[in-house]
């Protein structure tokens, strides 16, 4: 396989990138070109270096949930408004419209009920392509309602985070969503619910500083950028370069803030194992995904 990719790389370098993008993608980590179909078959993980490509929220639903189980989206029609009439270089309403067109999503998160290997679950997946996966009122509300749904139905909860943090365009209203979702998680936890937080590239700012760090179990994809402050801000503040691997999943594991780094292909089985371990029961036959 390796010679095949290398030879193709040479050909590609003489072609226009945009033409080949559909068929091939360059791995941002090792620089190898990967055939798109091959990437898809490998859950968008580079076959050469295991770099986990950023993927959209629907792909996570496919990867995690049972294909033959019923999946129901929660609060699909709940969307952002523009409470502050916000405009910087761009108008917030234009940013929302553009994000919806680009992603085909209503918001930067999708919340569903479904099942994992037969275990019912409430699953929330954030999408970085939608205004940087940022959490405004709508995202905060969707997460909060999903947590309540899990509590009311005694389902385990998993949130896959991918976010730059709280959404600046809604000012303090965005900030308060951190408090809201954390409050809901507190109730959920007191009721004995299992919350698995899954951190993907990137998880930063107010999202890390709220639900993402509040999992009973915290999993991370390999190499994912995870932190509170942005690298640029830290560099500016301290006036020195950041250590190799700083704010990567492996760094957080070493520092004690992540339970396990889990390869994308193993995420579904890991989740299912945890749900089963904590005593939840299957309601459907084991799914063969």
């Amino acid at each position: 396989m390796a010679w095949f990719r290398r030879s193709k790389k040479k050909i590609l370098s003489t072609e226009r990138r945009s033409v080949s993008e559909d068929l091939w993608r360059k791995c941002p980590s090792c620089g190898e070109y990967v055939y798109n179909q091959e990437l898809q078959n490998a859950q968008f993980v580079c076959p050469t270096c295991s770099h986990h490509f950023r993927i959209d929220c629907r792909k996570y639903l496919e990867l995690i949930l049972d294909k033959n189980g019923a999946t129901t989206e929660l609060n699909a029609s709940l969307v952002s408004v523009d409470p502050l009439d916000f405009k910087a270089l761009k108008k917030y309403t234009d940013q929302i419209t553009a994000a919806k067109e680009k992603t085909g999503l209503g918001e930067a998160i999708i919340t569903v009920t479904g099942s994992v290997e037969g275990y019912p679950i409430v699953l929330c997946v954030m999408d970085f392509a939608f205004i940087g996966g940022s959490m405004g009122s709508a995202v905060g509300e969707k997460i909060s309602r999903a947590i309540d749904h899990a509590r009311e139905h005694h389902f385990p909860l998993a949130i896959i985070s991918a976010s730059g943090g709280a959404r600046m365009q809604e000012g303090a209203l965005s900030l308060m969503q951190m408090a809201k979702s954390s409050a809901k998680l507190s109730l959920f936890s007191s009721a004995g619910g299992l919350f698995v937080s899954i951190l993907t590239d990137p998880t930063t700012g107010g999202v890390t500083a709220s639900h993402a760090m509040l999992g009973d179990i915290i999993l991370a994809e390999p190499g994912a950028l995870i932190g509170f402050a942005g690298a640029r801000v830290i560099k500016q503040t301290i006036g020195q370069d950041l250590p190799e691997g700083f704010q990567r999943a492996e760094f957080l594991l070493e520092k004690g803030f992540v339970d396990h780094i889990v390869h994308r292909k193993d995420m579904r089985a890991t989740l299912s194992h945890l749900i089963s371990f904590f005593g939840y029961e299957r309601t459907a036959d084991t799914d063969q995904q």
Binding site: A212, M213, G227, F228, A229, I238, L242, F246, K255, F257
Partner: peptide, 19 residues
């Protein structure tokens, strides 16, 4: 926003307080 703050879990410390 510092290296040590991140190493010692700035985000976790804040999140825990919110909860």
């Amino acid at each position: 926003p510092g290296i040590g703050a991140e190493e010692r879990g700035q985000a976790e410390a804040i999140a825990r307080n919110l909860m």
